[in-house]
């Protein structure tokens, strides 16, 4: 390969930067400057609707860790990460494999599974509120019909299990999306490999266990990142379904940030929560960026 001459290189560079300039400026301001501004707000003593940039240090962060609501919210975000993310991944993978078994009417099933993801969170949250209804909700009615009426869980009305009800509903909503990603991944595996494995005697579970699933790393990783980020920024679904209740039992960081900032006018405190959310997101996204960067180099 011949290296481009200096002149050609300069030309390329100038054209590229011209095109990049606009988006760099916009993203720079609306993303990076705003993140920096938020960090400054979180270190200030801003309370009420009058901006104040007197640096008060890490006071807000210190009081956060003594705030029971914050700890509950953090715990609930962790529950989302630990249950909702793997739950959606496994259910999605399971559905994708089922669909891959050349069932009849695959297209119809695919749409049915994907439909929840296409609906707005406001709609699905309202729907789940009805389903979780203790008296007339479809879940308790079904339980009664099959003779398990004595169970009659309180669902979202019980602070001890409310968060798990939220997780269940979110898994339902997101599994269609992960299914689609996994199905795409399965379909991109060359037919010849499957055939070869079959000739070697692999079938059923083994075929998926040793041939298909190992090749789904890339789609799994991208679905994982989307789910993780959602687990951190979850807001609308929970806001509508439980509003963080009963009590504080289903509060998550985004919900708490909204309440502190816009209902209680504690801008510095809200900023501190936002900064912590941002750091958590970084912890997830940076390794992903590093991984995909390394893969690109390979």
């Amino acid at each position: 390969m011949r290296f481009p001459s200096r002149k050609v290189f300069m030309k390329d560079w100038m054209v590229t930067s011209l095109f990049l300039l606009l988006s760099l400026v916009l993203v720079g301001y609306f993303v990076y400057v705003c993140i920096g501004w938020n960090v400054i707000v979180s270190l200030s003593d801003w309370k009420g609707l009058t901006p104040s940039y007197n640096i008060a240090g890490f006071d807000q962060y210190l009081s956060l860790f003594h705030d029971q609501v914050f700890l509950t919210s953090l715990k609930n975000n962790l529950i989302l990460i630990l249950l909702f993310v793997p739950g959606s991944l496994f259910l999605g993978l399971f559905l994708a494999i089922l669909l891959d078994l050349k069932v009849r009417g695959e297209g119809a099933f695919r749409s049915i599974y994907l439909l929840p993801f296409a609906l707005s969170f406001v709609i699905t949250a309202t729907l789940w509120a009805w389903m979780y209804n203790l008296d007339v909700g479809v879940i308790n009615t079904l339980l009664e019909k099959i003779g398990l009426g004595f169970l009659r869980p309180m669902w979202v009305a019980d602070p001890n299990i409310a968060m798990y009800c939220v997780v269940l509903a979110l898994i339902w909503q997101f599994s269609g999306y992960t299914m689609l990603i996994f199905l795409g991944g399965i379909r991109s595996i060359p037919e010849s490999q499957i055939r070869a494995a079959e000739v070697d005697g692999a079938s059923g579970f083994d075929l998926y266990r040793y041939v298909v699933i190992p090749q789904l790393k890339a789609p799994a990783l991208s679905a994982f990142i989307v789910l993780m980020v959602f687990a951190l920024k979850a807001f609308d679904f929970i806001y509508i379904l439980t509003g963080g209740g009963p009590g504080w039992s289903t509060y998550v960081l985004a919900l708490m940030m909204f309440k502190e900032t816009f209902r209680k006018n504690q801008f510095a405190y809200g900023g501190a929560i936002a900064t912590i959310l941002f750091l958590l997101a970084l912890v997830i996204v940076v390794p992903y960026l590093y991984l995909s960067f390394r893969r690109e180099k390979e």
Partner: peptide, 18 residues
Amino acid sequence: PEAFTAELDDIMSAFVTD
């Protein structure tokens, strides 16, 4: 004040359960 009312909603939501 709003800071009180916002808390009150959560306190009452806990109260109606426990």
